[in-house]
Amino acid sequence: MPIKSKKLVKLDRTDRRILEQVQKNGAFTNQELAEQVGLSPSPCLRRVRALEEAGIIVRTVTILDQKKLGLDLTAIILIGMDRHTPERFAEFEEKVSEYPEVQECYLITGQDADYMLKIVVPDMDHYHQFLLNRITRIQGVSGVHSSFVLRRVIDTNALPLGYLD
């Protein structure tokens, strides 16, 4: 499959301020957002819609407190595959995308692993069951190395927009 070039969208300072604010709080009303960035509501709404249409604002989500929901264990799992074929990778990616425990999945390089997963489960027993009944049953998984998060030092989805100047 050929790699497609992505055309960068030109953003001005006001667009960047809008993006900074919506990354902090996607639940702002248009009126609140307009006040935060120094616009009147109509131009603010037009700009937000243009950013959505350009594909820069992909979606708005609500972040839940995992501890308050009893999801106390976050694990980082490095996974090695037995073969490095597009079919094997596609099969793995399709399977892990079905698991709600998986928050992130990356195909990586520079490690003795092919994939890195971030998963969230209630406790070690649930992790053990997830590992044995799901991950190790995916065809092609040849190695698994797990690490467990002790504390979140930085936990953000916000992109660094300072590079856009």
Score class of each variant (00 low, 15 high):
2 P>Y: 03
3 I>H: 08
4 K>I: 14
11 L>F: 06
13 R>L: 00
15 D>E: 02
18 I>M: 08
19 L>C: 06
20 E>Q: 09
22 V>S: 07
23 Q>E: 10
24 K>I: 11
24 K>D: 11
27 A>D: 08
28 F>W: 15
30 N>I: 12
30 N>T: 14
34 A>H: 00
35 E>W: 01
36 Q>P: 08
38 G>I: 10
45 L>Q: 13
46 R>T: 14
49 R>K: 15
52 E>V: 15
56 I>R: 00
56 I>G: 07
57 I>P: 05
62 T>I: 12
65 D>A: 02
66 Q>L: 12
68 K>S: 05
72 D>E: 07
74 T>D: 06
76 I>C: 10
78 L>R: 00
79 I>A: 06
81 M>Y: 00
87 E>R: 14
87 E>N: 06
87 E>L: 13
89 F>P: 02
100 P>K: 14
106 Y>H: 15
107 L>P: 03
109 T>V: 14
114 D>M: 06
115 Y>A: 15
116 M>W: 00
116 M>F: 02
117 L>M: 10
124 M>N: 04
126 H>I: 03
131 L>A: 13
133 N>V: 03
134 R>A: 03
142 S>L: 10
148 F>T: 15
152 R>A: 10
155 D>G: 07
158 A>R: 13
160 P>F: 03
161 L>G: 08
163 Y>K: 13
